[in-house]
Amino acid sequence: MSHDHTHEHDHGDHPYQPDIEDFPFTERMVMTQAVAELIVEKGICTADELRQQIELMDSREPGLGAKLVAKAWADPAYKARVLEDVGKAAAEIGIDIGDIPIKAIENTGDVHNVVVCTLCSCYPRMLIGLPPDWYKSRAYRSRTVKEPRKVLEEFGTHIPDDVEVRVHDSTADLRYIVLPARPAGTEDWDEHKLAQLITRDSMVGVTPAKSPEDL
């Protein structure tokens, strides 16, 4: 079941149309479409609800996490609240993280944290969006727990031997976000400017935050 042509969006009478980038389509793509239509036809959910859920996840991107981290950098009292309860702290700045708890772990001069899920691919999706492919890869899931420093080097990150590398295997009910260390030379920066330094990868812990000269 494989087709190598593109597709025009020219029919409005079906709940979904495959997208141009979805071709050639596969058996699982057809299955997805079929299941979506069946659950709508059976009245289990509406097509609107599926669309809204897609829109919700599209709205989740690393900028949200960056906003939270930047505020934590700028405001020590807020950082304490983030470390205590990410869900409540996120709500303060208008971000609803849903019902899966997220825990923040802080990088310091003594500890570098990195997050992996060896059993599947648990990820703080409501705060930084869906995970990148490498996070779900066999290589990352297998090796990060056993040779974290080597894996970090593959991301261009060198952690000195006098800094503890602490790996978090996110296998249960918690999801993790790393608060990267605030770079030097940003003392007078506001939250908006600080947020530009905070990348998705730095909140997974595979890289540090960008430094001012990277901008």
């Binding site: 060896t118 599947c120 492919d133 899931r141 593959e154």
Partner: peptide, 16 residues
């Protein structure tokens, strides 16, 4: 699926 600690190649940092 329980693959923590197994040998594997380098992490390919590409994504889609």
């Amino acid at each position: 699926h329980d693959m923590g600690g197994l040998d594997a190649g380098p992490v390919e940092t590409t994504e889609h």
